Amino acid sequence: MKEDTAEDPYVVHRSLLFTVAYEMLGSAADAEDVLQESWLRWADVDRSRVGDPRAYLVRVVTRQSLNRLRTLARRREEYVGEWLPEPLLTAPDVAEDVELADSVSMALLTVLETLGPTERAVFVLREVFETPYGEIAEAVGKSVTAVRQIARRARDHVAARRPRVEVSRSEQQAVVERFLAALRTGRVQDLLDVMAPDVVFVADGGGLAPASRVPVHGAARVAALLAGPGRLVSALWLNGAPAARVEVNGRVAAATFVVRDGRVTHIHAVANPEKLTRLDTSPTRLAR
């Protein structure tokens, strides 16, 4: 008889485990690899000796993610141009959990890239999932005192670098829709009207697609870069926020936006085709 795995703790908590791994790695493909490795370890465990399966699984995924982060460090250093997280196609209802949507936003994940592996793990577990310090200490192999210090440093580091977002979901969506309409016209003035004067555009082509290799600053420069005819633009939800799929001359890019005071202040555009394989799949399930 085939064993029923519906109530297996790994199955029950899989969306949570994926979210933990993705937030630590910024890559859905690497997160899936970590989950596979974690499943193999879970399959060999004596379940009768596991008091809290959820905490145990989060600990396993954290350790595997840390191992993966360290092995990926060289790849990131050799990456061509700017490195952005792999965008995730999500359902619109993810945005209803404001804290979850914020934790997987491209803006925050990009800032997390500036943390070391342990700092990133501690930040994600403490600030996003409210994991007790004792459990974090066990997961990262540090003392509770050390983890508290790491958490404080990471929190201050992120707070100093992350774009401030203080808009409602409806305002965010309205501004993004205006921006997409401007992209469709391809006119410089239409783009200028919806962007903040100090807008920042960051693109990730990975050496596999045309993209600026450094951030572009200022509305005039960004508008000149994005203006032009022939763009096929469609709306979708990425990383818990309204976003865009843009196709130009057969090349596809995914863009997410930060909005403040009714204008777009940051644009993150991923054109690396290796990071866009999930755009045509079902939305990814996330959980906290």
Rank of each mutant, 00 (worst) to 15 (best):
A196E: 08
P215Q: 14
V222Q: 12
R148I: 07
M195E: 12
G206C: 04
D156W: 14
G205K: 10
S168D: 05
T185W: 15
E119V: 08
V122E: 07
V175F: 05
V111S: 00
R161A: 09
D156L: 11
G228R: 12
R120D: 10
F179H: 12
S212M: 11
L112G: 11
A146I: 09
V222C: 12
M195I: 11
L225W: 12
A159H: 14
V200I: 14
D156S: 07
E177F: 04
A151H: 05
E130D: 15
A151T: 03
P117L: 14
G207T: 03
V147H: 04
E113R: 06
T145L: 08
A219M: 03
V175Q: 00
A224S: 11
V216M: 07
P215Y: 03
V216W: 02
A224K: 12
A139R: 07
L191F: 13
L125R: 11
R161E: 06
I136K: 03
E171L: 15
T118I: 08
A203D: 01
A174W: 00
G141C: 13
S170W: 12
V140M: 00
P132Y: 02
V194A: 08
L226T: 05
A227V: 06
V216D: 01
F179W: 13
T118F: 05
E127Y: 01
V128S: 13
A181N: 14
A203P: 01
E171C: 14
A154I: 00
V122Y: 04
G186H: 14
R155L: 06
L183Q: 11
A139P: 03
R187L: 07
Q149L: 12
R187I: 10
G134P: 01
T145S: 12
V176T: 09
V144W: 11
